[in-house]
């Protein structure tokens, strides 16, 4: 198992019924819940890593609070968005990024 969203029925915080949203990640539709960050959507869809470091090493969430910049993605054409800070919006187009030329 990987990361997952606490099931609403089990959620002690008593959240209201989830409002589904859909974003695309590198063109592929991915389901999420309104209120999740982009990182939350990626993690709960089984993604652990989505960026490559300078050497090609895989990177995902590390600090979760906008400090480490490991989780950077491109959102609707804007490079270098911290996935852990950005609230996912329905229809967001997320693309993974690196410093390499071929993925520009």
């Amino acid at each position: 198992m990987s990361a997952r969203l606490v099931r609403r029925e089990d959620d002690a915080a008593g959240r209201r019924p989830d409002v589904p949203i859909e974003i695309t990640v590198d063109g592929v539709p991915v389901a999420g819940v309104a209120g999740q960050t982009v990182a939350g959507v990626l993690l709960t869809n089984g993604r652990r890593a989505w960026r490559r470091g300078p050497s090609g090493a895989p990177r995902g969430v590390f600090c979760g609070i906008g400090v480490c910049f490991d989780c950077l993605v491109t959102v609707n054409g804007d490079r270098d968005v911290r996935a852990c800070l950005r609230r996912a919006a329905d229809g967001d187009e997320v693309t993974t990024q690196s410093r390499a030329a071929e993925e520009s």
Partner: peptide, 12 residues
């Protein structure tokens, strides 16, 4: 003098 540094980018 001042210089701005951008985040790392693919070659531009």
């Amino acid at each position: 003098g001042e210089v701005l540094v951008t985040a790392p980018m693919p070659p531009t």
